[in-house]
Structures are given as structure tokens and as C-alpha cells.
């Protein structure tokens, strides 16, 4: 029982990451009609915002090891620790949560620059051209990251206080083996808050109403004298922020490396298609659904019966859903068609 619950939590956690990326992807497609293959790179850049912030906080005084003469080997002592003692160390320890403050404006700027500088020139081009240019951009961005940070994953730990596991089993009487990492729980909770905020923004504000109207009939909204384009540009920035924050918060779960954006890209597209192109609700539902299915499929009892099922379950479900519901789970006529 507890192993099923743990895998369910794993699935929700994985699904949260999928949903956050797919959410932005489907928003961009629904509003701008752009198939943005660089969206995974935005997740990557968010993670590296956290890495960079951590590196800045840990700029250190280097004390050379005199026994090594052929190269500089040294012990590093962060200036924050030297200047502020325990307080400085606490700030370093909280580097990832604090980095969110920097990640939000940085990603907004990156998103706006990307849309204004490149993507807008491809609005009227074919999807194939959009895919080519955005995929190229994704490669350029990841290679820039590799140039500055190397190919090795970079440890980006969560604060000490939440680096262990929560004894969920003990709380609910399921035994001490049912534990789950605190940071993953925080990630799941944060994802829920972010997704809810985006929904609230789209459904409870005038701005959101215009955007949703524009997703259905862009021309009609424009005829009403509304500058839809500017709003869609802001939506692109918002999508970048969501992907970036998702990436920054994911850094303690999987140490970031330059390729992590690509690792999520294909699966995010599958999620968008399964959820229904341009459907925000569909993307979120499909993200969680596929995350949970993937986790349950990797349970020993399942994978021993159907070896390799955990690797294909997402694509299998995608095929079944597209055969039975060609517009995806929640895709509606008129969007993405």
C-alpha cells in the first residue's frame, strides 16, 4: 500500500514538473500559434539562474594548499561567511529559494527578449520553420550554458532544514518506510500554487479574459480595438517565468546540467498534444496523468510483468488518447487548427 502511495507522490511530483513546462508551452501555442522548441531551454535557464545565484553567493577567498606546486589547489571560504559568520552561511544555505527572487525578473526579460528579438519574426511562417528556428535557439542556449558551466551536473542543494525526508508514514500510521523528501513536497506545493495562480490570472482578470478571447478569435479581439499582440508578448514572458521558476526549483532534485532542457522537451510536447493543443487545463491534467502513470509503471510488480513498460507508457497513452480523442483530452475545435 505504502509503495503505491510513494509512487503516486513520485508521479505527482514528476507530473508537477511536466505540467509547469507544458503549461507555458501550450499558452504560447494557444496565443501566438508558435511551436516553441526553445521552451525546454527556458526551464534550463531557470535552473541555471539558481546555479548562478548560488555561485555568486559563494564567491570565496581562496587559501592555497602550499603542498601542491604544479597547479592552484585551494580551500574556498565564502566571503559571506567571512563577513557575516553564521548569517552568511544561512544565506548561502538558502540560495535556491532566494534565487527565485532573481529568477522571476530575469526570466521575464529573457522571455520578452526572445519573443521580440526572434519569435515574432516567425509568427506567419510555417510550423516547420518555427520548429527549426526555436530548436536551433535551444541548442545555442544550451551550448552557451555548457561553455560557461561545463557538461558536469552542478550540485545545487536545498536548504539543510528541508534536505531530508518527511516521515509521512509515521504521521498517518503506515510505518516508518513511507518517507518522502521535503523538497519534493515543497516542489509539488509550489507547482500547485503556480498553476493555480496562472489559472486565476487567466480566468479572474480582464487581461486573462482578453487573452482567452484572443486564443479563440484573435481577429475579432483586434477589431474591438485591443492590442492583442502586446498581451500575447506578455503571455510569452509569463510562460518563460513559469518554466524558469520550475527549473530553479527543480535544481535540488536533479543537479542541473546543460542538457536538462532537452530531457524535458519531447515529453512536454507529448503532454501538450495529449492535453489538447492550446488547452491550459489539458496540459496540466495530462502532465499529472502521465507523470503518475510513468511512476506506477516503473513499480517492480508492473515492470516484472511488462518489462520496459515504464519507458513507453507515456507514448502508449498518447497514441490511445489521440486515436480516441484526436484533439487530445481537452482540446477544442478552433485552437491549433
Amino acid at each position: 500500500m505504502d509503495s503505491i502511495l510513494i509512487q503516486l507522490l513520485n508521479g505527482l511530483d514528476k507530473g508537477a514538473a511536466y505540467a509547469l513546462i507544458a503549461l507555458g508551452l501550450t499558452l504560447v501555442f494557444g496565443t501566438l500559434g508558435v511551436v516553441n522548441f526553445a521552451h525546454g531551454a527556458l526551464f534550463l535557464m531557470g535552473a541555471f539562474c539558481a546555479v548562478t545565484f548560488q555561485k555568486i553567493l559563494t564567491i570565496s577567498k581562496k587559501v592555497l594548499d602550499p603542498s601542491i606546486t604544479y597547479f592552484d589547489a585551494y580551500i574556498e571560504q565564502p566571503y559571506l561567511e567571512l563577513w557575516f559568520g553564521e548569517t552568511g552561511l544561512a544565506v548561502i544555505d538558502w540560495a535556491v529559494p532566494l534565487s527565485i527572487i532573481v529568477t522571476i525578473p530575469t526570466m521575464l526579460l529573457i522571455g520578452l527578449a526572445m519573443e521580440r528579438g526572434l519569435i515574432r519574426h516567425f509568427y506567419k511562417r510555417t510550423h516547420a520553420e518555427q520548429i527549426l528556428v526555436t530548436f536551433g535557439l535551444a541548442i545555442v542556449l544550451q551550448e552557451i550554458i555548457r561553455h560557461f558551466f561545463g557538461a558536469n551536473p552542478i550540485p545545487t542543494p536545498a536548504p539543510d532544514i528541508v534536505s531530508g525526508s518527511a516521515a509521512i508514514g509515521t504521521w498517518i500510521g503506515l510505518g516508518e518506510n513511507f518517507v518522502y523528501p521535503w523538497w519534493r513536497l515543497i516542489y509539488l506545493a509550489s507547482a500547485t500554487v503556480i498553476i493555480s495562480s496562472v489559472f486565476a490570472f487567466l480566468h479572474l482578470t480582464t487581461f486573462g479574459m482578453v487573452v482567452r478571447a484572443g486564443m479563440f478569435d484573435r481577429q475579432m479581439v483586434a477589431f474591438l480595438g485591443i492590442n492583442v499582440q502586446r498581451k500575447f508578448t506578455i503571455i510569452f514572458g509569463l510562460a518563460a517565468v513559469v518554466a524558469g521558476v520550475a527549473g530553479a526549483m527543480y535544481a535540488p532534485i536533479v543537479p542541473p546540467d546543460y542538457h536538462m532542457g532537452m530531457d524535458f522537451l519531447v515529453i512536454s510536447f507529448v503532454i501538450v498534444v495529449v492535453g489538447g493543443m492550446g488547452s491550459v487545463r489539458g496540459a496540466v491534467a495530462a502532465g499529472f496523468l502521465l507523470g503518475i502513470l510513468q511512476s506506477l509503471a516503473s513499480m517492480t510488480v508492473v515492470s516484472s510483468l511488462l518489462p520496459g513498460i515504464d519507458q513507453i507508457i507515456i507514448y502508449l497513452v498518447a497514441v490511445i488518447i489521440l486515436l480516441t480523442r484526436p484533439r487530445g483530452l481537452m482540446g477544442r475545435k478552433g485552437i491549433g487548427e
Partner: peptide
């Protein structure tokens, strides 16, 4: 486990029990 799995949580949790 597949090479390049990224998130190994679904393979690690069964170890607990």
C-alpha cells in the same frame, strides 16, 4: 534503469520497503 533517466525517484522508492 534507462541510461539518462534524470529522475530516479521511481526506482529508489522501492528500495525503502
Amino acid at each position: 534503469t534507462p541510461v539518462g533517466a534524470g529522475d530516479f525517484s521511481q526506482f529508489i522508492t522501492p528500495v525503502l520497503n
